[in-house]
Design a protein around this nucleic acid. Structure first.
Lengths: 210, 210
DNA sequence: GAGCCTATCTATAAATT
DNA sequence: TAATTTATAGATAGGCT
């Protein structure tokens, strides 16, 4: 586009590379937003500039939401072949962690084993997979609890006043932490769906969770 | 573009929404690749179609690589305010997990505590953060080990032949697992940098790791 | 659905202020 | 250094196969 045909290779001139980056980044984010809106799909876009600065766009409430969806997607595809793989290797302790009653027991086995510094690559890979699964379950459980708390608060459930207040405080606190965690400043052209109706703080909290 | 000006809202006709999705998805991925190449930056793009199918582009060796970079970026920004937050709440057990000598000890405390089902939201949030940090450390340690193994294999280190063979096997096995894990089929238009010089299996393994 | 066509709209490279 | 302008390359909507 523009005055000359573009060669698909790194722009060597630093200035024009920077200018092109700025322009095309804006264009790409605009297009990503258009795709999301026109076709009603979920889009996430991450860009790290050469100086390590992060620019992001996402069509959902939070990028974490889409990344978690991605992770679940990958998990589901990997789960079958992973389990087959491990059964082939005759490792009977491999169970579906997502349905396990007590995830902390999953870690216990590894605590009984040697220090992490002495583990080999295969063992570390197993540890990694289990930790990842447990982490996801922890997040899921947290969501459930927050949902319950939210429901209780909104419905004015008949419970001791003191307990109810505690839940409200906890939810509000979560909201603050999450804001710090996820809502980093975006580029001006980030198209952050500012025409949506405003959400209640509670809705916001729940939607931002993952 | 095209025969009529486009309105930025969901295309109601299902057929043309699908057609537009297919066309624009290709266009967006092409532009993402152009931005990455021209400006020498890292780009990741995730799209979930309305039927839940995943399409992805990334400029790096693997999407996981960029997602891990994102996670580290978020962590670094959150770390300071998180530690301040926790100190404010007078929780002395909060230390920098990334420099801790033995990450398994981090989990031990939580094992001594109640079952995960009985934890409250705040406790679960703490558990989540620690698991996340431990997971990252596990991955880091695994990378280190792989690097060592790779170096040993490539330099033909003077060590018992048996041990060396074991390492080679382990690295090759990792490579297989990672291929299953990460290299899902992409769209034909995914621009997967096919003009790069081929990597050795070992390089491939290391680059795919995260 | 996947391609091809082409009129038209958009993005943007280079120039300019 | 950033905003604005302009000429042109590129993307794509709608039609057709």
């Amino acid at each position: 586009m523009g005055r000359g045909k573009v060669q698909l290779k790194r722009i060597e001139d630093k200035i024009s590379r920077q200018v092109t980056f700025s322009k095309r980044k804006g264009g790409l984010m605009k297009k990503a937003n258009e795709l999301a809106v026109l076709c009603d799909v979920e889009v996430a876009l991450l860009i790290f500039s050469d100086r390590g600065r992060l620019y992001e766009f996402c069509s959902a409430e939070s990028l974490e939401e889409i990344l978690e969806r991605y992770r679940i997607h990958v998990d589901e595809e990997a789960a079958v072949c992973r389990r087959a793989e491990l059964e082939k290797q005759n490792l009977p302790e491999c169970t579906d962690l997502r349905t396990s009653a007590n995830p902390l027991q999953m870690i216990q086995r590894h605590l009984d084993a040697q220090n992490i510094e002495q583990k080999n690559i295969t063992e570390l890979t197993e540890l990694e997979k289990e930790l990842d699964a447990i982490l996801r379950q922890t997040r899921y459980r947290k969501t459930q609890l927050l949902m319950e708390a939210a429901k209780a608060v909104q419905e004015g459930e008949k419970q001791p006043r003191k307990e109810k207040t505690f839940m409200e405080e906890e939810v509000a606190e979560m909201s603050e932490n999450l804001d710090n965690h996820y809502n980093r400043p975006l580029e001006p052209e980030s198209n952050s769906n500012s025409n949506d109706p405003p959400l209640s703080p509670l809705q916001e909290t729940l939607l931002h969770l993952f």
